[in-house]
Write a protein that binds this DNA or RNA. Structure first.
Lengths: 212, 212
DNA sequence: TGTACATCAGTGAACGCGCGTTCACTGATGTAC
DNA sequence: TGTACATCAGTGAACGCGCGTTCACTGATGTAC
């Protein structure tokens, strides 16, 4: 009984289980039984568990970078964009690109934070080799929007901001659940992103003591 | 050849290796050979790997909560503290309590982010059971410092802020290394914390459009 | 003080289990002549 | 058109390895009488 698309079934099951449990905690047997395919199919199609992990990241990063690049083209055409516009563009690229592959942005960000928390050298090298160009273009635009800030301050704030953004989107489901349970207030993902943007601007664009 | 303090040697080796590699990725054999103790000593002293993980967290959280509680006593005595004072108190509690057990704040925060990224239900229950009271007291003070903000907005910003703080402190070493390599600029941990505080305030205390 | 027993920290070897991976194999489809 | 072979997706069972855990044991120290 051959499956219609074994590769896609494996990729989807791996995405869900990796995001829920982590890479080491998810066995190939769990992935293949969830996907309804034979255990040996992972090694047949992907070669190894490591290469499956890379394929899962690739599935998110290829459309994300394409989406981001097209927005960067527009942003670079109009100089002196403000921080809010730049951050909204990046967040929109996340939302739109995950929807195109029929996935959830929370899973994408959860995988990113897992990849960061459990440093897998093969994964880091893979991501740098494939996607650092789009990343660099975005950073240049951000830097231009904060001309008065020193290198050191800029990069520290940049990493604060990215940590907050990734953590927030990857934690959307549990935070939403807590707020529903305790205050009976629901927040859609779009609303959460809109709440997030001013906070991200607040991280980068710290008011000086003199300004207040 | 009995060791002077096998329990401490195991706890320290486990802390270092867990923070570097994650829980599942670190075997008891790696921990015991690093600590220079017998493999069976972990199960003898702690019972199981899960209980060892809890003991590692306990080692950080007990002095941290003690430190935080004593600062909360002072802060509650003087009403209407501003956000910066509250956040600095919490960060100071992290720095001081880790120094007291001769550890590094980066490792503490890395363990917290690992515990969050790889949800271990036993760990979550353990932390809630032991340390949620101090946490709640701190949240109440923060809420009082932001009286104009709705429940929903407050909690979203709170989680943004905590995500940014944990991520930043746990990533201090690699970020510092990047900045040293590329710009030859060094940032001490204390300086990084001082850079972090205004950004954390910026997350919570988002300027309204009308205020600017 | 001497002896018998209990307690405790630590040890070495082994246990069973689940893991990623491998391999010989099957059956369907495509291709060459 | 028919036949022989090649290719390819998928399979079932097994492999060896490293894992957390267990257990019988040792040797030192403490305690009771």
């Amino acid at each position: 009984m051959p499956q219609i698309d074994t590769v896609d079934r494996i990729l989807h099951a791996a995405t869900v289980l990796f995001a829920e449990q982590g890479f080491s905690e998810t066995s190939l047997r769990a992935i293949t039984s969830t996907a309804g395919v034979n255990l040996a199919a992972v090694n047949y199609h992907f070669g190894s568990k490591k290469e499956l992990i890379q394929a899962v990241f690739n599935r998110f990063f290829v459309p994300f970078c394409a989406e981001l690049e097209s927005r960067l083209d527009e942003l670079e055409a109009t100089p002196d964009q403000d921080l809010e516009t730049l951050l909204r563009a990046a967040l929109q690229a996340i939302l739109v690109s995950t929807e195109k592959i029929d996935e959830r942005p929370q899973r994408f960000m959860k995988l990113v934070s897992l990849g960061y928390a459990q440093p897998q050298e093969h994964l880091r090298q893979f991501l740098v080799a494939n996607f650092s160009l789009s990343y660099q273009r975005f950073i240049v635009l951000l830097k231009h929007a904060m001309p008065e800030v020193s290198h050191t301050e800029f990069y520290w704030r940049l990493y604060f901001m990215m940590g907050a953004a990734v953590f927030n989107l990857s934690s959307y489901d549990p935070i939403r659940a807590i707020l529903q349970l305790e205050y009976n207030e629901d927040t859609s993902l779009e609303e959460a992103v809109e709440l997030l943007i001013p906070s991200l601007v607040g991280i980068l664009d710290v008011p000086n003591a003199g300004k207040r």
